[in-house]
Simulated scan of single mutants.
Amino acid sequence: MLEIAPRQNDQSLKQYVFATLSQNIVRLNLKPGEKLNEAEISELLGISRTPIREALLDLAEKKLVVIRPRSGTFVSFIDMDIVAQFLYLRTVVERDLSRMACDCLSPDDIDRLHENIAIQKYYYETSKPNKLLECDIRFHGEIYRICKKEFLSDVISNLSIHFDRIRYLSMTKREFILKISEHENYLHALENGDVQAAMAISDEHMAHTFEDYEWIKEAFPHYIGSSEG
């Protein structure tokens, strides 16, 4: 069943459909390989099929769906090559942001990040992976904001959907508490102005995604494949 959020005032119909479908792809409400039915989506969202087709073309461009002539439109499989390339980008960017954040972190920033970690723990203990993913994204987004790199944060966010499917699945594991402890250690390094420790923790945090992938490959082999379908 699709999760349907209210349409925002500044969203066009195409943007609304894109946001709705991409969120449901990340949260596995729309599973890899699943066929999408334009008529059903149109009925669920209460809008015509034209903006749905336009959104599906945008999703295909981002390799989140595969459009097969005379067959239909299908959710793409999790493509680890795409995930690895995105992870490389984030590792390079966030290593440098760690250095910058050590120099410009304010007491208010520290409080905000500690509050975020406390909320992460709550969502982990209450088994709410949707909320936990949102909170995790906000934690990393705060580092971009602190370093005044909001535009770069938007670019990264727009590219992250393939990666976010891996993150969402990893948050269903009980062991995810280890990732939250990495956030705590990272924040501690930032507070102390320990650039080398912050950069090392950031690298380690990104690298653990590959460990998650190995688990996902065993637990959900039917989700893995080429984004080309």
Rank of each mutant, 00 (worst) to 15 (best):
M1S: 12
M1E: 11
M1Q: 11
E3M: 13
I4S: 04
R7D: 10
R7S: 11
N9K: 08
Q15K: 12
T20Q: 05
S22K: 02
I25A: 08
N29H: 13
K31E: 08
K35G: 13
N37P: 02
E38S: 07
E40T: 12
E40C: 06
I41M: 10
L44I: 13
L45F: 13
L45G: 14
G46F: 13
R53G: 10
K63F: 03
L64T: 06
S76C: 12
S76F: 10
F77Y: 05
F77Q: 01
F77A: 05
I78G: 02
D79W: 12
M80R: 08
I82L: 13
I82Q: 01
L89K: 09
T91Q: 04
T91Y: 01
E94P: 03
S98Y: 06
S98F: 07
S98N: 09
C102W: 11
C104L: 08
L105E: 05
S106V: 14
P107W: 08
P107K: 02
P107H: 10
D111M: 04
E115L: 01
N116L: 01
N116Y: 09
I119W: 11
Q120L: 00
Y123V: 00
Y124F: 12
P129K: 04
K131D: 00
L132T: 00
L133P: 02
E134H: 00
E134R: 00
C135N: 02
C135H: 01
H140M: 05
H140P: 06
G141I: 09
I143R: 08
I146S: 00
I146E: 00
K148V: 07
K149Q: 00
E150H: 12
F151W: 15
F151H: 13
F151G: 14
L152P: 01
S153A: 15
V155W: 10
S157W: 10
S157A: 14
L159G: 08
I161F: 12
I161P: 07
H162S: 03
F163T: 11
D164C: 15
D164R: 14
L169M: 14
M171D: 01
M171T: 07
T172K: 01
T172W: 09
K173V: 00
K173A: 09
R174W: 13
F176K: 01
F176Q: 01
I177E: 09
L178C: 12
L178N: 10
S181Y: 11
S181N: 09
H183P: 00
H183V: 07
E184G: 04
Y186A: 10
N192K: 11
N192R: 12
G193A: 13
D194F: 04
D194C: 10
V195A: 07
A198S: 14
M199S: 11
M199Y: 14
I201T: 06
D203E: 11
D203M: 08
H205A: 10
A207C: 03
A207L: 08
H208S: 14
F210E: 15
D212F: 15
W215C: 10
W215A: 10
I216D: 00
K217R: 03
E218Y: 06
A219E: 06
F220M: 07
P221Q: 01
H222A: 10
Y223A: 08
G225M: 05
S226Q: 10
S227H: 08
G229A: 15
